[in-house]
């Protein structure tokens, strides 16, 4: 167990808060919670890839960072007009 894995575990437990908001808040507030959760999960994956000393794993948070950017924009656009 090193500092990276302990920090990732703490952040995983912290995810309970935005997920509780995701479950009960109105749609637009849930979208904000989703954006926060995707930033935190990206960080957790970055910490885990360093904690396991496998730099190849860094590809996963890299892809997630790009995808969460696009998904946030698409959701916002969708919620602005259709839902």
């Amino acid at each position: 167990m090193n500092v990276w894995l302990v920090a990732a575990t703490v952040l995983l437990f912290a995810l309970v808060l935005p997920f509780s908001l995701l479950a009960r808040a109105p749609r637009i507030d849930a979208l904000v919670a989703l954006e926060l959760a995707s930033a935190v999960v990206t960080l957790v994956l970055l910490l885990l890839s360093e904690g396991f000393h496998r730099s190849i794993y860094t590809t996963v948070p890299l892809v997630l960072a790009g995808i969460s950017l696009v998904s946030g924009l698409v959701f916002a656009r969708f919620m602005e007009r259709r839902v």
């Binding site: 960072a65 950017l69 924009l73 656009r77």
Partner: peptide, 15 residues
Amino acid sequence: LLLGGPAVTIATARA
């Protein structure tokens, strides 16, 4: 994340 975060935040605020 640094560049994408503000863009998503502005789009969500507009929505």
